[in-house]
Design a protein around this nucleic acid. Structure first.
Lengths: 219, 219
DNA sequence: GCCTCCTTGTGAAAAGCTTCACGAACGGGG
DNA sequence: CCCCGTTCGTGAAGCTTTTCACAAGGAGGC
């Protein structure tokens, strides 16, 4: 387990979800081939990914669904809860506080901050919005979520770092600078849209229809 | 311009945003080195990316900010508007309808659908929520946005394809299957969170502090 | 006109990631 | 107990993406 690449970790995430589904369906074992089929990748990729963490499968049988699921859960650090805070109580921020997908995975948003005095004091899913200046290391947030407009994002990132978070999940469409000791992940909806726009612009031509690439749509 | 890789397109998106900023700052020219610095990548990467579309720079001078910005805008297909519909009027869907970032880039959400009778008829940012069964090719949506719970996502994708969309922007944390003629992009917040969780779990150890990787935080 | 200092565009090398292909393990049936 | 069909784990090959390094172009000073 010398070094794990980012693509591998992302696929691990996907395997985890497939395994939860498959477990719900009541299957005991699953082969790399079947797992791969659900993901639209090759079975060799699945085996290689998993083998970089250990030997979880049994030759001739495949992988034990629940066991592998639990192993991956532990690997991803999902067997614990993370204390997080959210900065930005606008459209996106409000949606994130109420999003079940996060709390289901061990992600607790324990406080909400905003810079706008008009929003401070309002209640969001049981949390009173506090002014961003109250961000402090005392609350012990491990993760900070940025859901502010672009122009405020870097400043908020600096505040979060000063407040001692270890990781930042950024929803503002911009590259942020953080110290190497802080892990940053960015969810950039704008970029996905632009990538889609590019693909639509270039794979279809208005009148003349060009040859399409084979197999399933890119992604 | 034989074939452009997906990573290149995503970086193009970033260059575009930097160029908008730089243009607002009033700079006329920018070198690949400066552009790269803002993005945290190498200047060779910038030059290679741009050169795969044409020769936009001038040796000894760099790139003309506004000209390059306009070129990239056209390349990404942002010099036009896209007619889109949204399916799923829950937390995330509501946030997306109100999100300025999209309309700013030429992305018009012209209708909102939901499967829940309780939500149908309600108004969201001036749009009346319609029942998902009313999705039809007659409205001429080019892009469909999926903001439903995971379990409904594949079904909705099929409906959108039947309604004739060319592209799908999926916010449900799951791989979807669509025909090759339809382009799919997925914004998977859950995966980003899990990747963050993984990084935090493995780069920090509770008591013993391991060697950190040099330079800026991974991304 | 010539010399110097920049910066692009681009083959070639390096690094990173995915797929191939095969040995080794495992269960089951006869 | 041995053979057969299945499936994992993994070095090696193949492919993609990034980085290097340098020739060629351009501006400005003298």
């Amino acid at each position: 387990m010398s070094h794990i690449s980012e693509p591998t970790v992302r696929r691990l995430s996907n395997y985890y979800r497939v395994l939860e589904e498959v477990a719900a369906e009541g299957k005991r074992m699953i082969s790399s081939h079947l797992l791969a089929e659900r993901e639209g990748i090759t079975s060799a990729q699945v085996r290689k990914d998993l083998s970089s963490f250990g030997s979880f499968g049994r030759r001739g049988l495949g992988y034990h669904v629940e066991h592998l699921r639990d192993e991956i859960r532990a690997l991803l650090g999902l067997d614990r809860r993370w204390k997080a805070c959210l900065v930005g109580a606008g459209h996106i921020g409000s949606a994130l506080v109420g999003y079940r997908g996060f709390s289901d995975q061990g992600f607790d948003i324990a406080a909400v901050f905003d810079a706008d005095a008009a929003r401070v004091g309002r209640t969001l899913e049981g949390l009173v919005v506090r002014h961003v200046s109250q961000l402090s290391p005392d609350d012990g947030f491990e993760i900070g979520v940025i859901a502010t407009p672009v122009r405020a994002a870097q400043e908020v990132a600096d505040l979060l770092v000063a407040a001692g978070v270890h990781g930042i999940l950024n929803f503002a469409p911009r590259k942020l600078r953080v110290p190497a000791a802080v892990t940053l992940r960015t969810v950039d909806m704008t970029m996905e849209f632009e990538s889609l726009s590019y693909a639509l612009t270039h794979t279809r031509t208005p009148v003349v229809r060009r040859k399409r690439t084979p197999s399933r749509g890119r992604e």
